[in-house]
Computed example of a mutant assay.
Amino acid sequence: LPQTELSIPAYYVLASAEASTNLSRYDGVRYGHRAAQFGDLEEMYSNTRAEGFGSEVKRRIMIGTYVLSHGYYDAYYLKAQKLRRLVANDFQTALQQCDVILAPTAPTTAPKLGSDIHDPVQMYLSDIYTIAVNLAGLPALTLPAGFGSDGLPVGVQLIGNYFSEAKILGVAHQMQLNSDWHSKMPV
């Protein structure tokens, strides 16, 4: 999968652009939360979005608005769409040689339940192994595959070709029949 490293910048450009356009309808008029206090329509929009969207959502909306703006659309959005196609082509080439791909889900063990990641870059990097799959639009399934030295779970993903969900579920079932990781609790 030689183009996988290109999936990270492409994904965040495309996901942010989609978030920006999809979330524009949440203005408090028809959809979503509406601020209780406002003076005019512009203030209602501003207060509604300030109250209703968290910092990560606001960050993605701003990035998406930027990459979709005049002068940057071709440089960022269209280029990211081309990279998406290259990543999807790599998966198609690989899946001609095998039924499913087994890959890590994350570069680290799972975070502790209730922990909060405050560094957005660290949060983005935790998605590094799943981004290419999402970008290519392929079905995948994550399942437990043991525990790290810290006692926290390790996940692996099974990636299949388009419309091969039954095959992925069958392989996952066989993995669970031959392991007991899914029945153990982390420390």
Results as ranks from 00 to 15, higher is better:
129 Y>I: 02
10 A>S: 05
50 A>W: 09
153 P>D: 07
180 D>K: 13
72 Y>I: 07
123 M>S: 13
68 L>R: 02
106 A>L: 07
24 S>T: 11
75 A>K: 14
23 L>G: 12
156 V>G: 03
124 Y>T: 07
169 L>Q: 00
165 E>H: 04
58 K>Y: 06
24 S>R: 05
1 L>D: 07
156 V>C: 05
95 L>P: 05
54 G>D: 15
44 M>W: 00
132 A>D: 03
126 S>P: 01
185 M>Y: 11
184 K>L: 15
49 R>C: 10
4 T>N: 07
96 Q>A: 14
60 R>I: 09
133 V>H: 04
75 A>V: 12
162 Y>C: 04
82 K>T: 14
169 L>K: 02
149 S>L: 11
147 F>W: 04
96 Q>S: 14
158 L>S: 04
11 Y>L: 11
104 P>M: 05
36 A>C: 02
19 A>I: 10
186 P>G: 08
151 G>H: 08
158 L>H: 00
69 S>D: 13
81 Q>K: 15
32 G>V: 10
111 P>S: 12
35 A>H: 12
133 V>T: 15
174 Q>A: 15
23 L>C: 11
86 L>V: 03
173 H>E: 14
52 G>D: 08
94 A>W: 01
132 A>E: 03
88 A>E: 07
140 A>Q: 03
79 K>A: 14
92 Q>H: 12
97 Q>P: 00
101 I>D: 01
129 Y>C: 08
22 N>R: 10
45 Y>G: 03
132 A>S: 15
110 A>C: 06
115 S>I: 02
102 L>N: 01
35 A>C: 10
100 V>Y: 03
11 Y>A: 09
152 L>F: 03
139 P>L: 02
97 Q>H: 13
185 M>H: 14
177 L>A: 07
144 P>G: 09
169 L>S: 01
169 L>P: 00
101 I>V: 06
